[in-house]
Structure formats: C-alpha cells, structure tokens
C-alpha cells in the first residue's frame, strides 16, 4: 500500500523540520523528489542523505517571479510533476492591535499566495496528464483561530478554501486537492515555547504529547497515494485530538 514508485513530487519548505520529514517519507515510498526551500545547505544535506531520486530547486516564496519559475524547474528536473506539497510557511505573530501591515502581507504572501501560484502552475500539466495530487499543509489554528496569529490563521484558513475550490474544479481530471492540518508538532516553531506554555497547550491535547513530524508526513503519503484517489477537498487533522470536527 501507498507505493509512490515513479511518482514525482515537489516539496516546498523542505529545509524545515516538517518539510524534510515529508520529503523523506515520499522518497521512502519510492517517489522522485524535488526539494525547495531558502536554506541551500539544509537542502543539500537532505539531498545527500536521500542519495538518489532527488533534486534541489532553491526558491524564496515571497518573490513572485521566483515562485512562477519553481514548478517549470521541477518539471524540467524530474520530467513531470505528479505531487505538489505546499508545505512552506512562516509566522509573524502579534496581537492585532500591534500587527504591522508588513507582517500580515508577508505571511499571506508566503503561506497563501505562493500556494495559489504553485497550484496554478502545477495544474497546467496535471490537467493535461489527467493525474495529480496537491496537498497543502494548513494548521489546526486555521480552523479554531488563535490569539496572536490573525495573519497565520487567516492564511491557513485560506488554504483550506483554496483547496476545496480547486478540488471541485479539477476532480474530473483525476486530480485530488487536500490539506493536512497539524496540531502542535515538535519543530523549531514549537521549540521556542517555554515549558509552561507547552504544559498549557498539552492540557488541551487528549493524547497528551506533541506530535512528531513523521506523523504529519504519514498523512501526506496517504493523500498522495493511489489508495486515496476518492478523497478530495478534505482536510485531514493530525492533532492528538486537540480539535475535533
């Protein structure tokens, strides 16, 4: 089950904790992967670890011109693009009374607008080839909201609406569009929390621990697989029970 041999995948934000776990998992299932990110050394280290069936395309997702070039570059490197993983994301937290326009704009540009542009570019050839998987990493806070994260939560909720609309547009072409919504996952984003903050968060998580990046990657692998062909427009929550739909 969940064999991805011969499939080609582009993972944005592959220099991060979640992105590298997703790239590893797709690769382990047999996929050819293109790693994209801003930190070249981290991408090269991961490519060295994966050894074969791996390409690197650096890209700053806040730069619209660079974003437009990313999918064609990945297609040129791998011969096609079957699976797009919109994973890259950043935060600029602050209560709304103090939130700067620049912090709003940057978070929306990287988390949401880049996902739209990459999906648009990827769908061009997916529609022709009658196959595709677009999987975007959203967040539990895109559904529940979170004080101090108006920009981030809006971008993540936006990704869910974007994905549902695309899912309806391209369903007839054998292309599925889904989201994975992590809860609190061990990562550089949660490492900065204090023990007291972590304890407060975990009091609301029935499973009682932070999630692992590999547990998000497993959900992505499932949605990318042939076995998930009948799942589209869906958001798969992986959050230890902290929010249930």
């Amino acid at each position: 089950m969940f064999d991805l041999s011969g499939r080609t995948a582009l993972v944005t934000g592959a220099s991060g904790g979640l992105g590298s776990a997703i790239a590893r998992a797709l690769h382990q299932q047999g996929a050819i992967v293109t790693l994209s990110g801003t930190r070249r050394e981290a991408l090269e280290a991961l490519a060295t670890e994966l050894k074969e069936r791996v390409h690197i395309e650096s890209c700053d997702l806040s730069d619209p011109e660079a974003v437009e070039k990313l999918v064609p570059a990945a297609e040129a490197a791998m011969g096609s693009l079957d699976i797009l993983i919109n994973n890259a994301g950043l935060t600029r937290d602050g209560l709304i009374l103090r939130m700067k326009d620049a912090d709003w704009d940057l978070v929306l540009a990287v988390n949401l607008t880049a996902s739209f542009r990459l999906a648009r570019a990827a769908l061009k050839s997916m529609v022709k080839r009658r196959f595709g998987r677009i999987i975007s990493i959203t967040s539990v806070v895109g559904v529940t909201g979170n004080p101090g994260q108006a920009n981030y939560a809006a971008s993540k909720a936006g990704i869910i609406g974007l994905s549902k609309s695309l899912a309806r547009e391209v369903a007839a072409r054998n292309i599925t569009v889904n989201c994975v919504a992590p809860g609190f996952i061990e990562s550089p984003m949660t490492d900065v929390l204090t023990e007291a903050q972590k304890a407060a968060i975990l009091s609301g998580v029935p499973i009682g621990r932070l999630g692992a990046a590999s547990e998000i990657a497993a959900a992505v692998v499932y949605l990318a697989s042939s076995e998930a062909a009948y799942v589209t427009g869906e958001t798969l929550h992986v959050n230890g029970g902290m929010a249930m739909n």
Binding site: V127, E169, V170
Partner: peptide, 11 residues
C-alpha cells in the same frame, strides 16, 4: 467539452 476543457482549448 466541460468548462475546464473550454479553458484548456483557449490556452
């Protein structure tokens, strides 16, 4: 054709 076909044809 469906609506997506017409867009593809135009492209």
């Amino acid at each position: 054709a469906d609506s997506l076909d017409t867009v593809e044809l135009v492209m």
